[in-house]
C-alpha cells in the first residue's frame, strides 16, 4: 500500500509571543499514513495532536522537516489547493465550521470554492448528504439540528471535495453518546465501504477499538504505535500518558495483578467475559486435578 501522508523529521513550534519563548510542540517526528487505512490518534488534552493534524493539510507549516501529501510538499504554495482537497478536515465544534444557514448550501461551499460546474456540485452535494444520511435535511437550517447531525453535515461538506483522506480532530468531543455513535458509524462506513483513508483524533479509547492502527501521542512524540490490541495492552504506558483505558481492559488488568492468568487484549465486553470464563474454567480444572 502506498502512503498518502508522509512526515519526515517534522518539528513544529508556535512562534514566540511577547516576552515568551517559542513553544516547541513536537520534534523530529517521522510518520506515514497508508492509503485506505483507519488510524486513530489518542493522547491527553494539549499534547499537540490537533497541531499535528493541521500539518496534514497545510493549515500549519512545519518549522523543521517536511510533510508530503501524495508526494506534494505542504510548504509549496503551488499545490496548496490540491493538498487541501486531497486531505479534508473536520473539527471539534460543529457550529464553528458550518458557513451557511441552509444545509445544502453549506455542503456546496467547498466545490464552489474549487470552481466545480453547477450541475456537478448538485450531484456531489446530493451524494455527500446521502452518504452521511442527511439528505432529507438538505433544506433545513443547521442551527436547529442536533450536534451529531451538525457534525455529519460538516463531514458531508468535506466529502463534497471528493478527498482521498479525511482527518477528524476530536469530532465527538462535544457530542452526547447518541451523536457520538452516529458520527463514528459514518466514519467507519467511509473507510470500509468507500476505502477512504481516515485519521481520527480522539480521547475516547472506545472509538479506537476497530481501527487498523492506534497512535498514542504525548510529550511531543509518539509513545506507542500499533494495532489496537498491541496498544491497549500497555496499560501502564497509557495511564502514565493520562489516557483512559476501557473498563474491560482495566478489569482484566486488575485481575492480572491479583495473579490471574489472562490475556489483556480482550476489548469488547463479549471477549472480556469469554476470557474471564476461560480463566476460571482452567483454574477449576487445575484444582480438580
Amino acid at each position: 500500500m502506498s502512503n498518502i501522508i508522509t512526515a519526515e523529521n517534522l518539528s513544529f513550534a508556535y512562534p514566540p509571543q511577547e516576552g515568551k519563548l517559542a513553544i516547541p510542540v513536537f520534534e523530529n517526528l517521522n510518520l506515514e499514513i497508508a492509503e485506505g487505512s483507519f488510524t486513530v490518534v489518542i493522547g491527553p488534552n494539549g499534547c499537540g495532536k490537533s497541531t499535528l493534524a493541521k500539518q496534514f493539510n497545510a493549515v500549519l507549516l512545519p518549522s523543521g522537516g517536511k510533510v508530503y501529501v501524495l508526494g506534494n510538499d505542504t510548504s509549496n504554495e503551488q499545490t496548496l489547493l490540491e493538498i487541501r482537497r486531497t486531505v479534508g478536515m473536520v473539527f471539534q465544534n460543529p457550529d464553528n465550521q458550518i458557513v451557511s444557514n441552509v444545509v445544502e448550501e453549506d455542503v456546496a461551499f467547498a466545490p464552489e470554492n474549487l470552481g466545480v460546474p453547477s450541475a456537478e456540485i448538485r450531484k456531489r452535494v446530493d451524494d455527500a448528504l446521502k452518504t452521511v444520511g442527511m439528505y432529507e435535511f438538505r433544506n433545513h437550517a443547521p442551527h436547529l439540528l442536533s450536534g451529531g447531525q451538525k457534525q455529519r453535515i460538516a463531514i458531508a461538506g468535506v466529502l463534497a471535495m471528493q478527498p482521498r483522506c479525511i482527518v477528524l480532530d476530536e469530532p465527538t468531543a462535544m457530542l452526547d453518546p447518541r451523536g457520538r455513535e452516529e458520527v463514528i458509524r459514518t466514519i467507519r462506513t467511509l473507510n470500509r465501504a468507500r476505502g477512504m483513508t481516515v485519521v481520527l483524533i480522539t480521547h475516547h479509547m472506545s472509538e479506537a477499538i476497530d481501527a487498523d492502527r492506534v497512535l498514542v501521542f504525548g510529550n511531543g512524540g509518539i509513545l506507542a504505535d500499533g494495532s489496537p490490541r498491541e496498544v491497549f495492552t500497555q496499560v501502564e504506558l497509557l495511564r502514565a500518558a493520562n489516557i483512559d483505558v476501557p473498563q474491560t481492559t482495566a478489569l482484566l488488568y486488575e485481575l492480572k495483578r491479583q495473579g490471574w492468568d489472562l490475556p489483556l487484549d480482550a476489548l469488547s465486553t463479549e471477549e472480556c467475559a469469554e476470557a474471564i470464563a476461560n480463566a476460571l474454567l482452567t483454574q477449576t480444572e487445575r484444582s480438580q486435578k
Binding site: Q247, T248, C272, I276, A277
Partner: peptide
C-alpha cells in the same frame, strides 16, 4: 450500563453464579 455490569451479565449467562448488581470496577 457500565461495561463491567455488561461483562457480569454475560458471565452469568454462561452459568457462573456471580452477583447481578455489579457496577463498579
Amino acid at each position: 450500563a457500565p461495561q463491567v455490569t455488561e461483562v457480569f451479565r454475560l458471565l452469568r449467562e454462561k452459568g457462573l453464579e456471580l452477583p447481578a448488581d455489579t457496577y463498579t470496577l
